[in-house]
């Protein structure tokens, strides 16, 4: 390290912070994925099939979300029905 570096070293520096931030996000995402039950995709597909018997919903209209909280798990179903649903009934 030379004279210039000595003065430069007081500046905020380094890529390690970037590495840590990226890793924290990535690892949290990986872990959430890992803890999901493996039946979720099938569950989503079958729910969609049942709904489509009655309502013409889009393939992307059902989202299944799984979250693990400290004492319990939450399975969240979100179904977006089309505007025309009243007319068909």
């Amino acid at each position: 390290m030379g004279l210039l570096d000595y003065f430069r070293s007081s500046q905020p520096k380094g890529s390690a912070n970037m590495a840590k931030e990226r890793l924290q996000i990535l690892v949290a995402h990986d872990r959430a994925e890992r803890h999901r039950p493996s039946y979720l995709p099938n569950l989503q597909r079958e729910i969609l099939e049942v709904i489509r018997k009655y309502v013409d919903v889009d393939m992307n209209a059902v989202s299944v979300n799984y979250e693990q909280e400290e004492t319990h798990e939450v399975l969240e179903l979100n179904i977006v029905l089309p505007d025309t649903v009243r007319n068909r009934a």
Binding site: S9, P12, K13, G14, S15, A16, N17, A19, K20, L23, Q24, V27
Partner: peptide
């Protein structure tokens, strides 16, 4: 390199 902020520190890796 850790001191220079160029490498993840022991603490960084343990935090993760």
């Amino acid at each position: 390199r850790v001191d220079n902020g160029e490498m993840l520190s022991v603490k960084d890796v343990q935090d993760i």
